[in-house]
Structure formats: C-alpha cells, structure tokens
Design a protein around this nucleic acid. Sequence first.
DNA 1: ACAATAGTGTCTATGAGACAATATAAA
DNA 2: TTTATATTGTCTCATAGACACTATTGT
Lengths: 240, 240
Amino acid sequence: MPPSTRPADDLAGFPPVAATVDLVALTVRDDALQVLVVTRTGDPHAGELALPGGFVHPDEDLDSAAARVLVEETGMRRPPGHLEQLKTYGAPNRDPRLRVVSVAYLAMAPTRLDPRVRGDAAVAAWVPVERALTAPLAFDHTTILTDAISRARSKLEYTSLAAAFCGPEFTVSNLRRVYEVVWGVRLDPRNFHRKVSSTPGFIIDTGHTVIDGPGRPAALYRRGPATMLVPPLTREQPDT
Amino acid sequence: MPPSTRPADDLAGFPPVAATVDLVALTVRDDALQVLVVTRTGDPHAGELALPGGFVHPDEDLDSAAARVLVEETGMRRPPGHLEQLKTYGAPNRDPRLRVVSVAYLAMAPTRLDPRVRGDAAVAAWVPVERALTAPLAFDHTTILTDAISRARSKLEYTSLAAAFCGPEFTVSNLRRVYEVVWGVRLDPRNFHRKVSSTPGFIIDTGHTVIDGPGRPAALYRRGPATMLVPPLTREQPDT
DNA sequence: ACAATAGTGTCTATGAGACAATATAAA
DNA sequence: TTTATATTGTCTCATAGACACTATTGT
C-alpha cells in the first residue's frame, strides 16, 4: 500500500483510547506488606476495592501522572520513597466502558505515608496484600498487584530499594524486617548485619543510636549512594 | 467533588490518545548485536531510521499487537524466540502530530529471522546496535533502544534467554558467543562450559555433534525447561 | 606435526550460611 | 540475674575465576 495509507501514518482514523495510570503503592506496616487501595463509588465494580488511578493529563508525562496520583491519594507534597513504571495493561475489555490502556506504577513508601480522605467519597487505605489478593479487586487490578509484588520482591534482591520502605534514618533491624516481611522469610540477624554493613554504599552510619525495648541500642543509618547490590541478597526460590 | 465529576469516571471528556506498539527486535548476527529498523517514508523524521511499530487494533491485546507487528516486519508466520513488554513511553510531545502512548516490546530472535520488504516502500533491515545508537533515530527511539539493550544485557544474567538468540539446536560455543556479543566481553570457554552444563535444565544434550572448522566436534544442545538461572551468570559491572 | 576448538579437572579466593561469643539494654 | 536484641567473629561449604590438561578435528 502507498505510504499515505500506512496505518502508522494514518493519523485521522487512529482508534482513540484512554490513557490512565494505576498505582501500586506498597509499604511495610505492622509487620505486613500493605498496599494502598480505594473503594470504588461508581460502576463498574462499585463498592469494590481498586488501585488508585486516573487519566493522564494532556500536558503530562507518564511519570508525572503517576506521581500526581500518588500525591493526590496520600496527601504528601512530594512522593517519598521510590516510584517506577511497572507494566502496561491494555486488554481490549479490561474496562467494559471503553478501551483503556493503563500504565501501572510501583511505589515503595515508608509507613509514615498516611493516606487521607479525598475530596469525594472514595477513601484510600492501607490493606495487607494478602487481603487485597483474596478480596475481589476491580478490573484486572489483582493481576497488576500480583505483578507488582513479584517485581518488588525481585528488586529487593539486587537493589538497595528496601531502604525506600524505611524512613530517612533506620536501624539494621528495621531494614531486615523489610526483607523478612516482603519475602515472607526469616533471615539470620547476624549474617544479615554483616552482609548489609559490608556492602559499600548501601547504608551510612549516622553516629546516633536508638533504644527500642530491651537489648543493646541499635545504630542508626541512612541510605547510601549505592543503588545496585553486587553480589545480591538471595532468597530460597525466586518466584519471578 | 462529587463522584460524577471525578476524572476517572468522566468518560465523555477523557483526553484521547493514540496507542501504539514499538518493537526492539534484537539478534546476534556476524558477531554483533543487531536491531531491526525501518526507514521512515513520511514526516516527521522522513528518511530516518526508526523502530518498527504500529497502532494497537481495537480488538487486540498489547502482546498480540506486538507479535503482529513483528510478524509483519519479518515475514515469519509465528514470532520465534522471545517477546516481552519493555516499557511504555508517553511524553506529551514525543510525536509532534498527536499524543501517542507507545508500549515498547523487546524481541530476541535467532539470526535466521530474515526481514522482508514490506508492502510499502519501507524496508526492514538488521543494523548493528552501535550504528543504530549513533545514527539519528526517529522520535524517542534512541531512548527506547538504549533501554532495550540494557534490559537484554541484564536478562542474560539471570535467565536462560540467551538461547532465544540461537536456533533450535546450538553448541555451547554458539551460546557463549551470544553472551560475549551482547555483553561485549570475553568469557573463558572452559568456565562457561562448566557453568552452563552444570545448571539444571538450561541446555539438553541432543546426542548429535557438529564440525565447524578445525577443532574437536561440538555437542549439539537444545533449550531446557529452566527459565531462571540460579545462581546467575555474572559480568563485571552491570549497567542497569 | 601443528593449530584450533571442545571439554574436563584442579586450585584458590570469595561469599553465604551456621553458629559461638560479646555488648548493652529492659524487666 | 534473666532475657532480649545488637554486633562481631569463626568455621565450613559452594561457587567463580584462573588455568593445566586431554580430546578431536582441519591444514
């Protein structure tokens, strides 16, 4: 066919779709991996839990749209922690109303990130992922959540992102509990401490200590410049 | 605001975008990592190299669209090798004509995949990635290609996808050259052989051998059921 | 015979995991 | 004192990398 009728150049007749972002915001709270969900107020799936999301604005980058949605749901001025693109979902009938291509994002936030009541009736709330995965989620959000958890578990192995779940200052035990909760395993505190403190640039000693319950005071650390962990931390059987 | 005017529920006024797929098809050919590119015939970027791509059809999944585009560009009945979603690019002005959200896919194909002349004037061709990265590519395709190469290099470490670059039967040397070309390093043939053959399910001996030039005949293998490599193969400094 | 590639065996340094031992707090 | 947690040290096993050596072909 002539160039003028090539699909990629036929701008007039392109099939329009709606572009949205969906957010999987994870945190470690009460010794459990939790995800930020909203309750849908309109059809379809009214009353069901769903991931926060919204349209991509015309003048907005995808990353910016995700950050904006996160801010809108949590009330934070700037999204702390970590935010990265996860995967895009665009099955023809994932939304029965119209063709929606949704770019899912994965956020890892410290617990101090408190969701707030939004302007409308929908309320964002932290929910343990076990509950979110067993409850019926709207659209294909169960699939998205599954993928996000899988990505998060993998990334803890070879990046320093576990610290994104902690506040600006944290102890080695805090960091270890992040791994234990996200991976669902028990880690030897002694080997973990040696591994983490011997990885250059992972954590930096602040010189301060904190006392939390019985036991020797723990040293406080902050995130170091390292982003990749070589060699990585390992768990028994990676699920991804 | 009331639920009826929430952005995510305001279906009438959603900002329409065009959904496309762009394909980064990689192969190992002539001891070089090569990428499938087309020459643009229309504006913008007429005459420049670009990644193959096209609109997502209304009844089509994203994965299906990517597979269709790959088939259209290569002439294969079924896309061999490996095809996975890479990342989605949606900067507001990445296409000056209209808002385009493009889902990029990464394909890894054996060399026998020959591009064909398409129906129109655009011709798909394999080009070494060094050349594609230095030449001006249309739109943000240089960024996409960079991300794809980075992903491919990473995936060779912890998956068995290197075999996707080989044909159905291959020697350990063939597989090693894939790693050497993609990573741009030299690997010790002896250690590589021991590592690969001792990883359960990576390669399966067919019992046949091939003679290629001087030297002892090499055993022929085919892909095993393993997808993840534990522990992974390692290179000096991961770039992602 | 010689060169070239395929494949096996050996040695060493490094890291993971098990676990003893010490430090310092609360009860 | 007892208990609990933090931190350091030691030991052993597995693996990566260096590299000697054997096997089997073409020239």
